[in-house]
Design a binder for these strands. Structure first.
Lengths: 291, 291
DNA sequence: AACAATTACGGAATCCGTAAAAATT
DNA sequence: AATTTTTACGGATTCCGTAATTGTT
């Protein structure tokens, strides 16, 4: 078997093409790399380099070896990552979500959550839920997808309903519910990270304009000093930042949106192997869900 | 990155389940393995073992790490093998064949073959020609298959014709040619390693019996002291062992078999990348082919 | 003159084996 | 009593950096 530090030197050399730069990139001296490549040839029992007094280059075999070495190093690092993440998943629970709603609820439940498990929350993008579970990036992922594979399953946790907050003097604000159609051609302030909701509002409201805002506090400010409508959901009642804003004078009226596409069924997905350990927290969330 | 010798210790421990046996299997002492596994945990930054004063076992994370380690070691060894074989294929030519005919011709050409390339000959079984070329197990493989992939191609080299050697007093021996049908219910002596020919004679000659012989010299003896018919081909004229036998009194008559299935079209397959280097020897063989 | 690779030498880090200890079966 | 793991200590190997050499551009 061949030592990894030699494979790494070879892999770097294949990029830099000189021993000096290889040494620099690895924070060692040139003689170290020289000896390393000599040892590598000795270990392989094969010529890997064409040597001239002032120049060294890979043979064809050397090129192949370098390519293989690069792969092996990558695999080694990926293995370490897999193991660390698996270990982490054994005593902690990382929770991700494709939409912000469940994370708001989790923040609200923070004090009730068990102490022995550490809960982290993060917003996900892309539809790589399966991969992220399989890689132990997360133990629980909330989304509007129900997943069932040989190693993954999902549970229903609740429904999230979109609401729009309208200035009290707008005529739509006097209704008990509203349809997307009735919001057409309006301009809205929207937080950038709202996951799957973004596609929905863009698709369903004709002629609407959206002012996307990255930062949450800036978003709060803009809503305060303007009368643009903005969106919330039935989970927003647990949003502490939003509650602080509400307490100050927000003259908007919250109106539920009645369309089917404004109702999102939320599932939580997880590795079936971990079901037992995750059941309590999933039950807690489902039980705490509004309505 | 994690050193391979530690991964190997872990992989072996996962099999033996005790540090003592691990040490024995690796030809080191127990303390070495103890320290190794401690260092491994330290390098990973993760608990891999449940330890009791007299007992040590893998945690779940440890089991995963051991499985991954086993894979990585295997990949490392396979890589070394690949590189050695590739290197060998750069300055030597290994030649394999699915049928013995071309190898007989090659033996005969031995003195004419270039000296700077070393030619080895071996009989192959199975239909893994592509794999064996891709792995650089062989540079040239003779068979009755024409292969064309993105990296492999084949060339026609000649046709091998089956003949049967019959006792001169048998009525079929008086014909200039013979059909498989006319050989029905006879018993033949056959060398075990005749590759694709075996299926053909078994299929085409009704009610025939075959006395298979492993060793070539024993085969020669049996033919000498019996009058069972046996098979040759148009390439057998270059078979030195067979020629020696012929010179002594073999009263058999060689009769070509006329069926289409007794004519085998022979191709040589190789990596397209190596075409240029292999062309001379392929031309030599094709030019030396009888007829 | 500047640069790249190699060699020589001494030091430092790592890895290993022996011996001994601790605890279990 | 025998087995298994662990610790302590000293030695040996290996690996590295500095300095100097060779040869090229």
């Amino acid at each position: 078997m061949i030592d990894n530090y030699l494979l790494e030197e070879l892999a770097v050399f294949a990029k830099t093409r000189t021993l000096a730069q290889t040494a620099e990139q690895l924070n060692v001296t040139q003689p170290t790399v020289t000896r390393g490549m000599q040892k590598l040839e000795d270990d392989f029992g094969v010529r890997l380099f064409d040597r001239q007094p002032n120049r060294i280059k890979l043979t064809e075999t050397g090129e192949l070896a370098a390519a293989e070495a690069t792969k092996l190093i990558k695999l080694n690092l990926e293995m370490i990552d897999r193991i660390k993440k698996f270990d982490y998943s054994q005593h902690s629970i990382r929770i991700g979500s494709m939409i912000p709603g469940p994370l708001i609820l989790l923040n609200h439940l923070h004090s009730v959550l068990p102490d022995d498990i550490q809960v982290e929350k993060e917003s996900l993008s892309g539809d790589k839920i399966e991969q992220q579970l399989m890689r132990n990036d997360y133990s629980l992922i909330f989304s509007n997808q129900e997943i069932l594979t040989s190693e993954i399953e999902s549970q229903y946790v609740g429904t999230e309903n979109l609401q729009v907050n309208l200035d009290q003097f707008m005529f739509q604000a006097n209704q008990s519910t509203v349809h997307f159609q009735e919001l057409k051609n309006l301009s809205f302030i929207v937080l950038r990270e709202i996951g799957s909701w973004r596609d929905i509002i863009q698709k369903e409201i004709p002629g609407a304009k959206f002012l996307y805002q990255e930062q949450r506090d800036a978003f709060a400010d803009i809503t305060k000093y303007s009368n643009f409508p903005y969106f919330t959901t039935n989970l927003s009642q647990y949003d502490t930042i939003l509650l602080q804003r509400k307490s100050k004078n927000d003259d908007r009226v919250t109106v539920p949106i009645w369309d089917e596409s404004a109702k999102m069924v939320i599932y939580v997905s997880y590795l079936t192997k971990q079901k037992q350990r995750l059941t309590p927290i999933m039950n807690l969330i489902r039980d705490s869900w509004p309505n």
